[in-house]
Computed example of a mutant assay.
Amino acid sequence: MKRTHLPLNALRVFDAAARHLSFTRAADELAVTPAAVGQQIRALEDVLGVVLFRRTSKGLELTPEGMAGLDPLREGFLRFEESVAAMQAGQASDRYTIAVPREFFAEWLGEKLAAFRNQTPGVQYVLTADEHADFTEANLDLAVRLAEGPGDLEGIALTAPLRVTVAAHGASDAWIDWPGAPLPEGAEAAITAASPGQALASALAGMGRTVVPLALAEGALAAGRLVALGEPEPARRAYWLVAPPPQWRSKKVRALVAYLSA
């Protein structure tokens, strides 16, 4: 059965104007101008082919045609609200599916998720290493990406955009490269890794020096397993927590975002 196209925005405006019997008060509720309310009502009257309001000496009144449609309209909006509530209730509030690079989970995120779980008993995590996985296909709630910003998604920066050159004690001067690595100009890579995590592991193994996000190297630097060959420097990319707007607005995601950004 083909659905009739409904002018839902105009119907919402009509509902507000009918409740207040005032375009001005309806405009205040909807955060628009009275002129915009009037325009929507006129457009709806044109679509329906009826007059919905008339002005009298006592103010604005509904016509019989407007009265006839008001109760079914309000019942419909209530059903819309019930539908939204049902869809939200169906979302698992105790399980997070997160795509995060292995190295970032090991060095930064894992400990914080454990602390969050201690505060929210029963929370479960489903983790995938492909941070560039499709949100819909992988049924993701969130992803952590090394990027310059959130792009078309909603997001927050989890780490500062800083990088550092590191090597193990006594390591050779060979450079370890990885896709997007900001090696010094003229530096030739003796080793090419697939990710900053592999580059970091190669440096820890004494295979040479590399430039990685500071957040990845802080633990090894603090433990003395690596040494910094210079001070941290500004970088273009940082680790961002991102999600499409529908996921980002969900209650459970807001709770985790608030915790990680505190």
Results as ranks from 00 to 15, higher is better:
187 A>S: 08
246 P>Y: 12
77 F>H: 08
227 V>N: 04
220 A>Q: 09
236 R>S: 13
166 V>F: 14
220 A>C: 04
249 R>S: 13
7 P>Y: 09
261 S>L: 09
99 A>N: 00
77 F>V: 03
153 L>S: 04
224 G>A: 07
188 E>N: 01
208 G>A: 01
202 S>M: 00
6 L>C: 09
256 L>W: 04
235 A>N: 07
255 A>Q: 15
155 G>H: 04
108 W>K: 02
63 T>M: 11
244 P>S: 13
41 I>N: 00
215 A>C: 08
105 F>H: 08
93 S>M: 09
107 E>A: 15
17 A>K: 01
35 A>K: 08
41 I>W: 01
250 S>R: 10
7 P>W: 07
46 D>Y: 10
30 L>E: 05
205 A>C: 07
49 G>Q: 14
18 A>W: 03
65 E>H: 13
186 G>I: 01
27 A>M: 12
216 L>K: 01
222 A>H: 10
2 K>H: 14
29 E>K: 04
52 L>S: 09
187 A>V: 02
170 G>T: 08
148 E>N: 10
155 G>P: 07
111 E>H: 09
132 H>G: 10
74 R>C: 05
147 A>H: 11
203 A>C: 09
129 A>S: 13
163 R>L: 13
46 D>W: 10
110 G>A: 11
98 I>F: 04
8 L>M: 12
168 A>T: 05
241 L>D: 03
169 H>V: 12
213 P>Y: 04
137 E>M: 10
87 M>V: 13
185 E>F: 08
192 T>V: 03
208 G>D: 02
29 E>Q: 14
33 T>W: 08
180 G>E: 07
213 P>T: 04
245 P>N: 00
188 E>K: 07
166 V>D: 10
227 V>R: 12
133 A>N: 09
228 A>N: 03
7 P>G: 11
76 G>F: 02
239 Y>Q: 10
114 A>V: 07
121 P>H: 06
111 E>C: 05
3 R>C: 02
8 L>W: 15
117 R>V: 06
94 D>N: 15
137 E>P: 11
69 G>F: 06
43 A>R: 11
157 A>Q: 03
43 A>V: 07
242 V>F: 11
142 L>R: 00
61 E>S: 06
233 E>T: 11
225 R>S: 15
204 L>N: 01
111 E>I: 06
110 G>C: 09
140 L>R: 00
103 E>Q: 09
160 A>H: 14
16 A>S: 12
141 D>F: 06
198 Q>T: 02
25 R>D: 15
66 G>R: 00
88 Q>F: 13
1 M>G: 15
102 R>T: 11
199 A>S: 10
91 Q>N: 12
258 A>C: 01
97 T>S: 15
39 Q>D: 00
86 A>T: 15
125 Y>E: 02
253 V>R: 00
163 R>V: 15
93 S>C: 05
102 R>V: 12
55 R>H: 14
197 G>A: 05
127 L>K: 07
80 F>D: 08
219 G>D: 05
41 I>Y: 01
127 L>D: 04
27 A>W: 04
163 R>Y: 03
173 D>S: 15
81 E>L: 14
225 R>Q: 15
118 N>T: 06
130 D>E: 15
120 T>Y: 08
28 D>M: 10
23 F>H: 13
108 W>V: 12
144 V>I: 12
143 A>T: 05
22 S>F: 06
198 Q>K: 08
